[in-house]
Design a binder for these strands. Structure first.
Lengths: 338, 338
DNA sequence: TGCTATCATGGGAGCGCTCCCATGAAGAGG
DNA sequence: CCTCTTCATGGGAGCGCTCCCATGATAGCA
């Protein structure tokens, strides 16, 4: 069905090896020969067989993207679509392909084996792992290059791309305190997710820096979903905070809904700040003050870094921390208005 | 690094061929031999090399999922995440893997070649193609098994999974008319997308069936995004419809925002109905009347059907139409209340 | 008992490629 | 003019698997 190296070789009057060299941009090929082979390959619409190449060379130019679905909620918020877009786009630009695994718990074992062995994959991007993800141990034992999106506090020999969740959250909460809010509550993310616990840590650091006592009554944990944010806010309303730092925009949307239903004005009665700057954050009522994190760029950089790790193995882990940005909109209230 | 067939064979005291038969559940292997081989394979944690298998057998057990990103908006609405989840889950259950291509126009040519040739992929799921997608022609020329999510009106020898957009839209608009709305407008999807034009067709059929004259002033086309729905609604407000059938929930969310800003009550002043039943539709203010389409199931069925097509080639195209469901919430108003 | 069907198993060929080593031609240097 | 290097090229081996055919062994039947 499809053309082979041998066929190109025959038609170009050279050997299989020479064609292979041309296809892989090997230096020592004569200019004329190269051109001739190229033109034949072009004419026959030649495409190297991925399986054969991978079998012979041990590389596939395929990256695995593993997204644990234990926290299935994550797929209703635009985080993963954006991340995938970034990864896919970087892979396209670097002649790689993306293999996607949504890690459903019931298939986890099989998947781990398939991902790690079988040689299908040159490296793995592990997105948003729980702190105790079993993939991790398997990966490092296997020695397959991999990179995480989101840092892992317990391990300091693992490569990752992340934003500085602690400092970003701290800055946001500091901002809320600075513009005059006194009782600042938080709707935190799950404690077993790094982003959740880091943002909560930032919240506490901001309080401490300003000499505000930490009050456990002002903390509710939720699961990063809209519904979770809604329920959490309902529990927070009786406590009457001035402002709430919500650890994700999706939850903030839920919180706004709870406040609207309770007849409370935002930011008049309670101010709200989120985290992520999902596209919808600019269009909530009122528009959401939030922390912008470059999700798509994190995906691109993760892919690019992994590709580089594969071609230039290096014992040290790579770390990339991308900057965030406070996006001040109306939901946090203004210093003037208070 | 990883164990090979030959190694298993050696340790189990049989030949490579026998091990291969055991691994592929070939019938003619002695029970004892089979058990012995299985246990050795288990012990050595054997995983067949995908590249080698695929090279020898010509199958890879990998499905390609191609999502054209021309309409990039689609990734901000939960349609694709849900679709991907359905596909991935069916693949997991059937021992297949998913290769993801977000088809950015600038890489389109390269991608088409890679997808179609190279033997990496057993079949392709093409999601939400435009009516004139260049992938299509390439696919059918190549003869690679493929299935679309979303039908294609111009081609009747292509396999697809879809909902009946025309009838679903017709039912929704009929419902709006039946409960007493007179001037029913529509915010339509893009005319070059099948779902867009089908739903618009359903709108017109419903009017005709009820003997209501079609009024072009009551139609605004948008691009399936929240922002698009917002702008479209602003243009529709001066026309003063009683109700608006919005061709997607994402756009309906935008429409609600425009109405809120204009100080109009829903459904009191203008009733709204959407399409999709995205998770957020139940939580808009007011909750959105919409058409529920089983997005995740469409994904699963597309994958399952494709897998079946690959193992049982068959000249006739397969078609699956999944049922939709009217979900009546508050945004459409009630017959009683009017 | 002899002859053919059936079954379990082994071994060779080959999938399309990359990598290594061998080869011959051409250029460099004394 | 001969040897030494450099460069372009060819060919063999082999990646790990599947598939086909051959081979014994066993069973079935007259």
């Amino acid at each position: 069905m499809s053309t082979t190296l041998e066929e190109i070789a025959r038609q170009a009057g050279v050997s299989r090896s020479t064609v292979s060299r041309v296809m892989n941009d090997h230096p020592s090929v004569d200019q004329d020969t190269r051109a001739r082979v190229r033109s034949v390959a072009e004419r026959l619409n030649y495409q190297p067989n991925v399986a054969a190449r991978s079998l012979a060379a041990g590389r596939t130019n395929i990256l695995g993207l593993v997204i644990p679905m234990g926290v299935s909620a994550l797929f209703t918020d635009p985080y993963f679509p954006l991340l995938i877009q970034g990864i896919s786009s970087a892979c396209n630009a670097n002649e790689h392909s993306v293999m996607l695994w949504l890690a459903e718990p019931e298939y986890e074992r099989r998947m781990i084996r398939q991902v790690l062995q079988g040689g299908l994959i040159d490296g793995v991007i592990l997105a948003s792992a729980l702190m105790d993800d079993p993939m991790l141990e398997a990966m490092r034992r296997r020695g397959l290059p991999f990179i995480m999106v989101g840092r892992l506090p317990t391990d300091n020999d693992i490569s990752y791309v992340d934003v500085d969740n602690v400092n970003s959250a701290r800055e946001m909460v500091s901002y809320l305190l600075r513009i005059g809010h006194r009782r600042v509550a938080t709707i935190a993310g799950p404690a077993n997710m790094i982003a959740g616990s880091d943002r909560f840590m930032g919240y506490r650091q901001a309080l401490r820096a300003r000499g505000v006592a930490f009050d456990p009554a002002l903390v509710v944990e939720a699961d990063f979903t809209e519904e979770g944010g809604y329920v959490a806010m309902q529990r927070l309303i009786p406590v009457r905070p001035d402002a709430v730092f919500v650890a994700s925009d999706a939850m903030a949307v839920g919180a706004l809904r709870a406040l609207r239903e309770a007849g409370l004005r935002v930011p008049g009665d309670i101010a709200i700040a989120g985290f992520d700057d999902i596209p919808f954050a600019a269009r909530t009522d009122p528009p959401l003050t939030t922390v912008r994190q470059p999700i798509q760029r994190m995906g691109s950089i993760a892919a690019e870094t992994l590709i580089d790790m594969i071609s230039h193995p290096h014992p040290q882990p790579r770390r990339v921390i991308l900057p965030t940005e406070l996006v001040i909109r109306e939901s946090s209230g203004s210093p003037v208005s208070r």
